[in-house]
Design a binder for these strands. Structure first.
Lengths: 359, 359
DNA sequence: CTGTTAGCGCATTCAG
DNA sequence: CTGAATGCGCTAACAG
């Protein structure tokens, strides 16, 4: 049906082994036969059979990238960065031909934030004998899932698949669990700086719109916020002024209304991320409140649209691209991890127009 | 090294073939042995070897989704929709067990808009013997690339891979070329309605910020715009009032400045898409121009952030999710294409606050 | 319903 | 430097 190695070999008048060696370039082959083989490949429009090659070599060139939501730029940017490291010899200028084979195929898989789908994809990737897997974004904090995930990752690593966490806190799976290379964000510190900024502006009544409960990212950002509040002696009301919701615009809209209902004298609302902040702004606008004159609003992540929001959002900038790129390099083994295996990127406060002093 | 089918067979006291049949569920197996096999699979933590299975069965469960930019929600939304159709038995409620196997693995590949990378990925996917390939978004209109692409798609189809175009105009590769199933957007019509809207508001001096030249999407939107202009007898100045740029915010910013330089009396600027429109708004704001009092601005696509822009963007809504979902179903053969093979989605005008009558 | 027998297409020993 | 032989792990005919 399809043209195979043997066909190419016949056409070039050599053995299949030689063709294989030419194609993989990991073995000495005479220049003359080499060009002859390459010509045959061209003429026959031969394309390697990946499965067969993976079976024989016991490895594949697939790298899985798991994201909670491809449609969300937060993940899109990281995924894009991971993938940008997969091309053959990105920086390596010298020499002829490919050095690293034809490059890895980075495949992004959408888990929708569901633990089950995350596990399903990991199984699928393990079945494909993926070369590496990058898990991006926070995860659910649930004993059952954490255990299942740790088990699956252990098996993946045992099967030779490199596992890298990106934008997810380090795993602590006890003694024997896996401790994959990790690229983390300092969500706690970023949130703390954000709240401190508001406090220094004079705000004393702050509402917090948290992400879904039981997610690492949610918890860390909330902890940073609460730490700043406690340090300022404002910890008492924190619980009442926190509302949980999804990481989307609608949650911001609904959450702002709920917060204002609970405490009409709020002078600032901190949103779980930029997208949520947009929803907050919409609700506030609808209510006739001016930002930041009547109430300040903050986001988190500094996605590209944050600067174009109305008004431009004060937020915390996460180096999503850098983190993704580093994760990609770690996944390919192109870069060593630090001693502890964990690299942490800090988030910088970006002060813009959505925050100001309270009236 | 790894546990294989044979190991499971031995543990369950059956033959490898039986285990295979149980796992694939496409052949009758006695209930007793079935459970016995399943238990052995559990105990051994067995995971199918994808490459081996793909080699033997001459098919794989990979579906490739090519996008120009994963970090752009335009593509993220379509990719997410395609993938949402891949899960096992999405609607099929009845019965026990999976009906369709463990579901296809949709893999998103980032071409960065580069024709070469597009071809590279198609080769990679062909090598993986992908079950289907979905090409999203517009493409470069260049004889060389079009030819190479048509050739590669023909080979893919010959190799049994289903090819679907999504958000890309139908291919016309002459007689023998491939005519893949297509889900297209009526970019021309949408652009025309947008310009007509502005004209009916009274605008007579309109600037157009086009996307990269030689791209189908760019050309179609521009054609729609020009058609509306010509119908109103305003075609003469069109060339001078058109600036090309990338589909990003920076191009909007630079382009708006260029247009205003060329023609300070402009009362409206149409951007190639929403992201570009954000850049336009930023440039205008910087110049002290009010939107829409001094100048109207429009986007295209109606991405989620369009409604939260400053001011809310008048734009054309493209049913990105629906289109992606349909493409996914076509790719899986779950749905038949229409007679001609081409489904066209129209774009609806969304009038918001960024457009108004000229002074 | 189940076991046996052959390959799928390629990478890799081992000789030459 | 090159060819011949072997097996990767699984599925798909065939028989039973």
């Amino acid at each position: 049906m399809s043209v195979t190695l043997a066909d190419v070999a016949a056409r070039a008048g050599v053995s299949a082994a030689t063709v294989s060696r030419v194609l993989n370039g990991n073995y000495p082959v005479a220049g003359a036969t080499r060009t002859r083989v390459l010509r045959a490949v061209e003429e026959l429009e031969y394309v390697v059979n990946g499965p067969a090659s993976a079976l024989a070599a016991a490895t594949s060139d697939l790298v899985g990238v798991l994201v909670n939501d491809v449609a969300d730029p937060f993940f899109g940017i990281m995924a894009s960065a991971v993938q940008s490291e997969m091309s053959p010899v990105p920086g390596g200028g010298g020499g002829a031909g490919r050095a690293d084979g034809p490059g890895k195929l980075a495949v992004v898989c959408n888990t929708g934030g569901s633990p089950e789908r995350e596990l399903t994809y990991l199984t699928l990737l393990q079945r494909q004998r993926a070369a590496a897997v990058v898990l991006t974004g926070g995860t659910v904090e649930d004993a059952a899932h954490t255990g299942a995930l740790a088990a699956r990752l252990r098996r993946l690593e045992a099967a030779g698949t490199r596992v890298v966490l990106c934008g997810r806190p380090p795993m602590d799976a006890g003694d024997a669990g896996p401790h994959p290379l990790t690229v983390a964000f300092d969500n706690r510190g970023g949130a703390r700086r954000l709240t401190d900024h508001l406090l220094s502006l004079g705000h004393r009544s702050l509402g917090y719109l948290a992400g879904p409960a039981a997610r690492t990212t949610t918890r860390h950002r909330l902890e940073g916020h609460r730490a700043a509040l406690s340090a300022a002696g404002l910890g008492g009301d924190a619980e009442r002024l926190t509302v949980h919701g999804a990481y989307d615009r609608a949650s911001g809209y609904d959450g702002a209304r709920e917060l204002l209902w609970r405490e009409p004298s709020l002078t600032a609302i901190l949103a779980a991320n930029d997208t949520v902040a947009l929803g907050v702004c919409a609700a506030l606008r609808e209510r006739g409140l001016r930002i930041p004159e009547d109430i300040s609003v903050t986001g988190f992540d500094d996605l590209p649209f944050a600067v174009d929001a109305m008004p431009a959002l004060t937020t915390v900038r996460l180096p999503l691209h850098d983190a993704g790129a580093k994760a990609g390099r770690l996944a390919l083994g192109r870069e060593e991890g630090p001693p502890g295996g964990v690299t942490t990127f800090r988030g910088d406060l970006m002060v813009r127009d959505s925050t100001g002093a309270p009236r």
